[in-house]
Amino acid sequence: MEENTSFFEKERDRLTAEISSGFEELLSSSNNLNRKLEEVLGMTREYETIAALWQSFHELMRGHSDDGDVSAETEQQPHGLPGTGGHILTASKSGGLGAVQEEQQNS
């Protein structure tokens, strides 16, 4: 029966098989692409969750620093850390200790 098939029919069958193979490869590649895109979208959702967590932490810490600023304004005394030269030992300025405090605050 193959003897009766013309060159056109053989070439048509070969090209049809090649096109079909190409479509299968295209379908496989697009499925891989879709999986990768879903993975990327999933990762961005995870990052959004982490970013929201850090944002709430930042707002919480900013709220605490704002509260600290209000108390510092009412006390009218600068706050400092021990060992940095800004730490206030007493509130009175009498005697030798007051001179040390003024020197620490001015430096």
Rank of each mutant, 00 (worst) to 15 (best):
E3I: 09
N4H: 14
N4R: 09
F7C: 10
F7H: 12
F8V: 12
E11G: 04
R12Y: 11
R12Q: 11
L15V: 07
S20D: 15
G22R: 07
E24Q: 13
E25C: 02
L26C: 08
S28L: 14
S29E: 15
N31H: 09
R35D: 14
E38I: 09
V40S: 08
L41T: 13
L41E: 15
G42W: 02
T44I: 12
T44Y: 05
T44V: 11
R45V: 15
R45T: 15
Y47V: 13
E48H: 03
E48M: 10
T49H: 03
T49N: 06
I50D: 14
A51E: 05
L53D: 14
W54S: 06
S56Q: 08
F57M: 06
H58D: 09
H58L: 10
E59W: 04
L60A: 12
R62N: 09
R62V: 11
G63N: 10
H64F: 12
S65R: 12
S65I: 13
D66C: 01
D67P: 01
D69S: 07
S71D: 12
S71G: 10
S71R: 15
A72I: 02
T74D: 10
Q76K: 09
Q76L: 09
Q76C: 05
Q76T: 09
H79E: 05
L81R: 10
L81E: 05
P82E: 02
P82N: 03
G83F: 00
G83R: 00
G85N: 00
H87T: 01
H87D: 05
H87G: 01
I88Q: 11
A91G: 02
S92E: 12
S94Q: 08
S94I: 07
L97N: 02
L97W: 02
L97Y: 03
A99Y: 06
A99C: 05
V100D: 03
E102R: 14
Q104M: 06
Q105H: 04
Q105T: 07
N106G: 05
S107P: 00
S107T: 09
